[in-house]
Amino acid sequence: MDLELRHLRVVCAIEEAGSLTRAAASLRMTQPALSAQLRRIEGMLGGTLFERRNSGVVATSFGELVLGRARAILPGIDGLLADTARAARRRTTPDRVRLGSVGAPLLGHLVPAVRAALPGAEVTARCRSSPVPLLEDLAAERLEAAIVGDNPGRELPPPAGVELRPLVTEPVFALLPASHPLAAREEVGLGHLIGEDWAVPRPDGDRTREYWSTVFAMTGRQPHTPYEAEGRQLIELVRAGLAVSLCQATFIEVPGVAVRPLAGNPLWYRHVLAWHRDGPLAAHGDRLVREVGAGYLATCAASPVYARWRERHPDSAQLAAG
Rank of each mutant, 00 (worst) to 15 (best):
L190A: 07
N151W: 15
P112Q: 07
I194K: 03
L167P: 05
L107Q: 03
G149H: 05
L118N: 07
V111G: 01
P131W: 03
V172W: 12
V123E: 11
A139K: 03
V102E: 00
D83A: 15
H109T: 10
R89G: 10
S101Q: 01
A145C: 10
P133M: 04
C127N: 14
P157C: 08
P152A: 15
P166Y: 05
F173D: 12
S130K: 07
R86N: 13
V132R: 00
P157T: 13
S101T: 06
T124R: 12
T93Q: 12
P112S: 07
V123G: 10
E155N: 08
G153V: 04
V102H: 00
A117F: 07
T169F: 06
T124L: 09
G161D: 12
R86V: 15
T93E: 15
P112Y: 10
D137K: 01
D83G: 12
V172P: 06
V188Y: 03
E170P: 01
R165L: 04
L135H: 09
A117Q: 06
D204N: 12
V188I: 11
E187Q: 14
E196F: 00
L164I: 09
T93H: 06
V188E: 06
F173E: 10
P119V: 09
L167W: 04
L138E: 06
L81A: 05
V132D: 01
P166T: 02
A85M: 07
A85D: 13
T124H: 02
R89F: 05
T169R: 13
E163R: 14
C127R: 15
L193H: 08
L175G: 04
V200A: 13
L118C: 13
L167Y: 03
P158M: 06
I194H: 03
H180R: 03
L107C: 05
N151Y: 15
V132P: 00
A88F: 11
L143S: 01
L143C: 00
R96N: 05
L81T: 01
L134M: 05
G79C: 07
R89E: 14
L156H: 01
L81E: 11
H109F: 11
L107H: 06
P181V: 02
G153K: 05
L99F: 08
G120P: 02
L106N: 02
A121M: 02
P94Q: 11
G108V: 06
R115A: 14
S129K: 03
R89Y: 03
E141V: 13
H180Q: 04
D137L: 09
D137Y: 06
D95N: 10
R98A: 13
P112I: 11
L167M: 07
P166A: 05
A104Q: 08
E155L: 10
A174P: 07
L164P: 05
P94V: 09
D137S: 07
E141P: 09
L118H: 09
T92A: 15
G189N: 10
A116D: 13
E141G: 14
A125C: 00
R91A: 15
G195C: 08
R91I: 13
P171W: 12
A139M: 02
T93C: 08
A104T: 08
V132G: 02
P166D: 03
L175D: 04
D137R: 01
P166G: 01
A85Y: 07
A183D: 04
L99I: 07
